[in-house]
Design a protein around this nucleic acid. Structure first.
Lengths: 236, 236, 236, 236
DNA sequence: GATGAATGAGATTTCATTCAT
DNA sequence: TATGAATGAAATCTCATTCAT
């Protein structure tokens, strides 16, 4: 159940937090891999390449990853790569589409997050799933967040996915009445920033704590910071 | 009179005749600003290059930045660049040293952050200064956080600087008793993650909100999430 | 209920949050012919490059030779060169391996060189073969002798090959009892010096005499100087 | 006392052994340093540069030596270097002139070298002085012998100096009647080759033996090989 | 479908030489 | 005289992409 919003600032602006940075270019899109009907072998190769891409992007970052690395990781050849993708960015695009789906689904599934224990559970579940998604698609999300994407189309996918999540969280925050509406965009920005980079820290091994503790802590902090959960008793 | 020697194994130093000559190479090519005492003109050029580096890194990101871009931005020549730095990484190192200083100083200046209004002021002041530092040294901090740094030395500078801040904030959090000690590492990680990425969002224009609102919101969120500031009354 | 902790020294792993991520880089760029299984075409190109290298090194000398020259001589592209060798030195290394083999074989084949006519024949045959080897691998031998090699591994190959020949000749000299043992190292040094530089002179066209005369003369001089062959009768 | 030459082959060809290799270029000569009258300070700087050149050329070889190395070794600046020499080759030229003088003087001083003890003494004395000259001017001689000189003028200086010595030694060999006239050019070539490279070996530390032994051995070998000194008695 | 080989545009780096003070 | 600073031509090296089999 959603309570009426006290003030009237337009929620349409909430996603301003995830807009792409001012850019000025325009890369041409790719060519192959589109209309091709793949047989079993082809599908296997495609999968190998996608997985390899994810692994190599994770290790080196999208920009620094060389097609050669990917091809080697997939145990195939340069020629084959360009049979499936028109270029490196095209591979990123394919991964980005998957990732965007996941994130959009995730967004849609976020239920109300009240200041109480039930809200906490909902939040925790969301964070857990976000972390899982990051563990797989981290490199793509990083590419979006670190602004490594040249292609407009790919970039837009990211903006849209993050807007979906951001809008949803904004809605939940609004319901919890914890943040003044004026700061909504900033709050959403801060929350998404923490989510993304914290996940990166965890996925990359920079932040190492045992999984449950880490998740508990994150949940607590977010719950208190953004959703009005009460601070520990002063005696605490 | 010489007696004939049996044709046995060759004397150990017969081959002394063909040993490689003793090398005495000296410094390998690439001798940057270190030993050189700079005069006014040199200092000016050095500064131009450092500033240009910061600007170009900010615009393109460290990895994608070309020495050529930097040189053009500094209105000097390729040759000149290599007179002051042995390569792009060396320039980053120079900037990193400065940045590390700033951050370390910043860390030292963080006073106690209680859950009350005084604590909030202290926190806000810290965040404000952090944002300022980020506005200048963002590219360096990004390079650290996005793990774009190959050089061990530079990397370590970053780790140290962030450890300094993180430790200090951990101390302040402990004083405020808001987070359970078990989750301290994770909490610090989350806080730093948010700080860095939020600052990036602001500095890059991804997050746009007017400065005061943005700062207020960030302060509120952090104060509540990490330092035990009370949630707004349910009446909101 | 949590008791307040005194604000003491920070726990040892608070900074665990900021450690650099574990790197797993793999092979640095520059992966030449080693691991690659070459097919017919590849082997042909490799051969073309090796031959071109030998030719260009011969013409210009190792140090002054440009990769560009070699590539042009092999009628291929820059990129292709670096597909087979990681740099000029790597090409030299490949040639050096071949050359070292030749020289070692040559060394092993040197039979006893007495002061008599049979010894002279043996010596002449050795010199002839050495000259032949020099005609092909001269540039490599020069690079060794003129100390143009930076790479330790390549250098060692040369030292070893020359030691092999030097030791063998030392043995033959000892058998002939023509030189006092104390001077053996110096004698071997002198002989190798003459061999190498004379061959260079011949191969480069600096010394021009018809082949048989030249070989006869060299044989005579070495036979008398190092292996006890009698001087011409005073009537000469 | 010189005996009449038995056969009639033209001595004019003897120097064919030291001709420059077939070349096809034409470098422009230098500019400054010619007409300048130097005061005490200038003379000192000039000397420092010449000495530094010799040292650096010795360490790195002429080709690989950078003006920067020389300038640093001379504790002066780039600007100053070009005040005294029009370019690197010009410095080599200056050194070459000195060296050529030394060698020409040395050549003129070579007395008759018979097969007897007196001849041996003369030979030894010559070799000793040659080695001394090499110790100082080795880099220049190397540059000549290793064909590193681009400038025609400098090259010619070397050819002339070596021809002087070669011709003189040819004359002494002819007197000793040890080598058949047909092989004279080759013999001279071989002798000069050995001299030069052996000296390089000694000066560079490749050949290390104590000075007297080394000199004795070299003398013996040359005396026997080129000047008809008798081999050791067969009983030897 | 798949592959090894080849390419060349573009980035980095070096260094002899010139310039301004 | 002397110098630090600057330059740019030339060399090295990388890597996404295309080609031929």
């Amino acid at each position: 159940m959603r309570t009426a919003r006290p003030t009237g600032s337009p929620p349409a602006d909430a996603n301003a937090a995830y807009k792409s940075p001012p850019r000025a270019d325009g890369a041409p899109p790719g060519r192959p891999a589109q209309g091709r009907e793949l047989r079993a072998q082809g599908r296997r190769t495609l999968r190998r390449l996608l997985d390899a891409g994810l692994r190599v992007f994770a290790r080196r970052g999208y920009h620094a990853a060389r097609v050669d690395d990917i091809v080697r990781a997939a145990r195939t050849s340069h020629g084959t790569f360009y049979l499936y993708f028109s270029n490196k960015e095209d591979l990123l695009r394919a991964l980005a589409v998957d990732c965007a789906h996941q994130l959009t689904d995730l967004a849609a599934a976020v239920g109300p997050i009240g200041a109480d224990a039930a809200g906490r559970r909902e939040l925790r579940s969301f964070l857990d799933r976000f972390l899982d998604t990051y563990r797989r698609y981290g490199p793509v999300i990083r590419a979006w967040m670190e602004d490594q994407v040249g292609d407009r189309h790919v970039d837009r996918l990211g903006v849209r996915a993050f807007t979906a999540i951001g809008d949803r969280l904004a809605l939940r925050m609004r319901e919890s009445s914890a943040t003044p509406p004026a700061g909504e965009a900033a709050a959403v920005g801060a929350l998404m920033a923490m989510l993304e980079r914290f996940s990166y820290g965890v996925a990359s091994g920079r932040i190492d704590a045992d999984e449950p503790t880490m998740l508990e802590t994150l949940t607590t902090v977010v719950h208190r910071g953004f959703f009005g959960a009460p601070a520990p008793s002063i005696a605490g």
